[in-house]
Design a protein around this nucleic acid. Sequence first.
DNA 1: GTCTATAACATGATAGAC
DNA 2: GTCTATCATGTTATAGAC
Lengths: 196, 196
Amino acid sequence: MGKPDTRARIQGAAAMLFRRYGYSATGLKRIATEADAPFGSIYHFFPGGKQQLAEQMIRTSGTEYGRLVLALLDSVPDPAESLVHAFEAAADDLAAADYADACPIGTVALEVASSNEGLRIATAEVFEEWVGAATEWFSRWVAEPKAAQSLAYSMIMMLEGAFMLSRAARDPEPLRVAGRSMAELLRTAIAGAGED
Amino acid sequence: MGKPDTRARIQGAAAMLFRRYGYSATGLKRIATEADAPFGSIYHFFPGGKQQLAEQMIRTSGTEYGRLVLALLDSVPDPAESLVHAFEAAADDLAAADYADACPIGTVALEVASSNEGLRIATAEVFEEWVGAATEWFSRWVAEPKAAQSLAYSMIMMLEGAFMLSRAARDPEPLRVAGRSMAELLRTAIAGAGED
DNA sequence: GTCTATAACATGATAGAC
DNA sequence: GTCTATCATGTTATAGAC
């Protein structure tokens, strides 16, 4: 098990830096340094330069992170407890990473929304992917499709907002509050399904 | 009513650009151009340069935006309806601004969280300020202080996350979903207060 | 106080030797 | 494929004329 090849190291370094510091603040030189790769290799493997590097990381890390979160939601049988548990895990991970590594695409998404159409679309498609997967998950307990989708949107929005507040305050508590609120929202949706 | 003085124009241009494009992507030269002010004036009025400009904008725009949101929440008597209405207004405003002007400090907050301690603290203090004000508002309908604070946190996190998804997708729907979820959360908190 | 010029440096990107 | 040197440009910041 030698170290990963140059291309993989560049991709990994780019993912780490874009996630922590965002798109504009991350220079290609720093990516090369962090990847322990010569500068020219970046353009050898990624002819599209910074934009291509960012787009691939958005799609790759985005898909991967979506799977990670969804997997976390199946670690406990009760769905409301699962939500609390998942946000709790996110809180612990964030604190352990010294509040650096939260959502891999959140920072970039806000940065590029009004300035880089290609990257904006990439982030939008990842979010859509997450909403779809989360909607399926919620549909196991909430029959009404629109209700399940609303819960999916809410979960992702709450997670992104909680990352923002937790990172700013260097405090895991917002993420925990978010988890409890999502659990409450799900319980209400389940209980309210029979009404009308 | 002449145009605002140089200092105010610089502050205004900085606030607009930081809000739309973030901290790193916004250059002082562009701020000067947009403010129709000579470059040197920036350092004349803001000797601390970019950092000072950003910190003042975080605190000023942050406080102002907090008041704006809170004021929006008092436009309708019923609190749950107020939440829906406030998020609806945010959705309309965002769409009208072509998805450029959302939360004035959200993008910067994520960007600087792991790279600029001074600005990170400024964003954290603004969020804390918002949570405090929102907790007071929720306390009018939810007696338990911890429950009111949780709702306050949830509202701000949901708003920030909704801005992210709405901007990425160029679609106001996430903000509307967020509003309905918050209304649901508040109704549950009010209804559940009598239990135990 | 207003404005211009420029220093000192970093950036994304490219060319071309090896 | 690997790596270095360099280009053109943009950055923050400063110096100094007016």
